[in-house]
Design a protein around this nucleic acid. Sequence first.
DNA 1: ATACCCATGTAAAAAGTTACATGATTAG
DNA 2: CTAATCATGTAACTTTTTACATGGGTAT
Lengths: 179, 179
Amino acid sequence: MARTNNTLYAVLGILSGGPRSGYDIRKQFQASLRHFWSESYGQIYPALKELVRQGYAEELAAPDNRRNKKLYRMTPAGDACFRSWLSEPVSPINYRDELLLKVFFAAPQDRDAIRALFERERAELEQAKAAYAEQEAEVRRQYEAEPVPYWMLTLRYGILSTEARLQWCEEALSRLSRE
Amino acid sequence: MARTNNTLYAVLGILSGGPRSGYDIRKQFQASLRHFWSESYGQIYPALKELVRQGYAEELAAPDNRRNKKLYRMTPAGDACFRSWLSEPVSPINYRDELLLKVFFAAPQDRDAIRALFERERAELEQAKAAYAEQEAEVRRQYEAEPVPYWMLTLRYGILSTEARLQWCEEALSRLSRE
DNA sequence: ATACCCATGTAAAAAGTTACATGATTAG
DNA sequence: CTAATCATGTAACTTTTTACATGGGTAT
């Protein structure tokens, strides 16, 4: 498999949950992973083609083919490849944060503009936090006393990182007010 | 100026601190911004050319031209353009986090692999945290009782977000041990 | 009927990395 | 003298987004 084409692994990961169409995959990225990963159709359909070419997925002759939907299923080779990727160390990410870029270059003359940026950010983070809390409550209801699945950790990360960024916004705003 | 070509603004931002060469710009990305932004030579040199073409920067006939270094200076138009970009709302980022992707798809069979990923991440975060703390101490020494510059906020964000992610790793590791 | 999802796909453009070529200068 | 660093740049490649084309199905 290619160097580290994460798109292929991300799609493979979704297929590890059962057969899916390109459209299904896109929906799942939007519904469950959008806070830390997403792929557009322009990536997904070619990735599926490539996975088939490499023998990591296969097209299912769809029985429920009413809406000429093409279902893909992971092959055993695909599963092996995916598990092997999972154990490899993550490659360093190139994190880019436009808000931090603006804050970094802001001068005293930009104070009001910067304050507005922080206020907008704070509002968005508060919304995100509420959404996470609701999602968490729902998952807990769903699993009752059972151990929740691993992926709940990604939700937990969403909460912790959102709270940290929120705290940062608040500190920044109070500093901007003092001056 | 183009849609939202952040590279142009990032380079312009660095030029707002005074004339620089492409090489200087790269060094500054590495030294001060690498935690939230970076650009490669393959972006920087074309960006400088483009900024000159659009009248936002100009090449200085360098007096210290010993090492045939090309210095670029921001023009007044460039400054206006930059300040205007600064006040615009940040565009939504496509955040991608490979560790979260792996955690999301991990199954019970992958437990040891996932534990190793978290341990490695924790070690890296602890190093980063120490580096941030040292950097902060140095800046405080430098500014003594004076108000520190805005960009210190980016350092503060580094600390808060690193601590949050570290806490997450620790929670995850203790959960993985319990099972 | 008409609007809105479902569903697949591609072309073109934009963004970004990597690897290389080239040569000057400086420190040991 | 030699290795490291300074310094500019480009070509090829990979990755990603955006916008479009196309058409079936479903609900009002």
